[in-house]
Computed example of a mutant assay.
Amino acid sequence: MSSSSATAHRTLRPRAKVVVIMGATGCGKSTLSMYLASRFPCEVINTDKMQLYRGLDITTNKIPLAERHDVPHHLLSSFDPNDGEMTPSQFRSIGHAAISGIASRGMLPLLVGGSNSFIHALLVERFDPEAEVFSGLGSAASPELRYDCCFLWVDASPPVLEEYQSKRVDEMLDMGAFNELAGYYDLRRRTNPGGWTCLRKAIGVPEFDRYFMTYPPPWGVGPGDGWRREDAGMREDDPGREGAYKEAVRKIKKNAVELAKWQIMKIERLRGCGWELHKLDATEAVRLAMAAKEEGGGRSRDVWESEVVEPSVKFVERFLW
């Protein structure tokens, strides 16, 4: 086949339709995905690089199994973190295989996650792993995509999102993230102190590694072993340990805010390069959700549905039909 014929063949070949939910950490991407999955025949593909790996489910904020409502989730806890860090080029390959498989079943691939460098690598028609697309002096991202994409950008005002992220860190610790991190630290020191480089980059791991170096967890501790957040040493007779714990939490919250800023910068850069993103303002819904938890009530769900879900459904309906 000549090069001109091959080009024509690619042009005429129908491209898979893909819906992409983007946004900063904590803005509600997974929640929106389940709302859409209740309305459209979807299967989810994870595009969060930390959630690719097995382990640290609470710390990396994976959607719990009970909240997936039997919707298939691909590339979620699928890889051993001790096997090495996945590159954008590798994700492009495995992501394409997942999209092709879902589309072949007549289902709609729904990409959900905050790793915009992986989203870019997967979706562009021609990907150059050497190009610094998200650097200020780098190359512009290509507007040419290899799929027919509908982009949904869940956003919230920075002050509200920052407050929510701070509260969410506290909630994750209450859910068992401290115990999970203690078990992960103990596993690494016993099996492969220099390895596990993938999950060691997850927010929460380096911050508490410094704490555990001074106050190591008991040998063999792990999720469900009964070592609780209270066991961190929050006692009046050990102010140094309490201070170290609070400093680790402070750094986690600070780094979560910085991550959100970086994610939004990348999204803005993609939009500036010609990606058509439908922006959904979740500010009021997030604010009301925080108030509801404190007051025991509220109407955050109604606002979430009217401000985020309903516009998203309309965008996807127009995209599909």
Rank of each mutant, 00 (worst) to 15 (best):
residue 51 Q to I: 08
residue 33 S to N: 09
residue 59 T to E: 02
residue 56 L to E: 00
residue 43 E to K: 06
residue 18 V to N: 09
residue 30 S to P: 11
residue 104 S to F: 01
residue 28 G to A: 06
residue 27 C to F: 10
residue 96 H to P: 00
residue 23 G to T: 08
residue 27 C to R: 10
residue 36 L to V: 10
residue 68 R to N: 04
residue 42 C to I: 11
residue 45 I to R: 03
residue 17 K to W: 03
residue 101 G to W: 04
residue 98 A to G: 06
residue 86 M to I: 08
residue 94 I to Q: 01
residue 90 Q to D: 10
residue 12 L to C: 15
residue 105 R to N: 08
residue 86 M to S: 02
residue 22 M to D: 01
residue 57 D to I: 05
residue 73 H to G: 00
residue 62 K to E: 12
residue 91 F to S: 01
residue 79 F to S: 08
residue 55 G to F: 09
residue 15 R to F: 05
residue 94 I to R: 07
residue 9 H to P: 03
residue 83 D to L: 06
residue 84 G to S: 12
residue 14 P to K: 07
residue 97 A to L: 15
residue 75 L to C: 02
residue 13 R to E: 15
residue 13 R to Y: 11
residue 20 V to L: 09
residue 61 N to R: 08
residue 91 F to Q: 06
residue 29 K to L: 09
residue 51 Q to M: 12
residue 91 F to T: 08
residue 81 P to M: 04
residue 94 I to D: 02
residue 13 R to A: 12
residue 69 H to F: 10
residue 59 T to H: 12
residue 96 H to G: 14
residue 95 G to L: 05
residue 51 Q to G: 05
residue 104 S to V: 01
residue 70 D to K: 02
residue 30 S to C: 12
residue 24 A to G: 03
residue 50 M to R: 07
residue 20 V to K: 00
residue 42 C to S: 12
residue 67 E to K: 05
residue 67 E to P: 00
residue 15 R to H: 07
residue 42 C to F: 02
residue 100 S to G: 10
residue 24 A to S: 14
residue 22 M to E: 01
residue 53 Y to P: 08
residue 87 T to G: 08
residue 82 N to A: 12
residue 90 Q to R: 09
residue 58 I to C: 06
residue 101 G to P: 02
residue 60 T to W: 06
residue 38 S to M: 11
residue 96 H to A: 12
residue 66 A to I: 09
residue 103 A to Q: 08
residue 90 Q to W: 07
residue 103 A to H: 14
residue 16 A to W: 04
residue 99 I to K: 01
residue 97 A to R: 15
residue 32 L to K: 03
residue 33 S to Y: 15
residue 100 S to K: 12
residue 8 A to C: 10
residue 22 M to C: 12
residue 93 S to D: 13
residue 46 N to W: 01
residue 60 T to P: 00
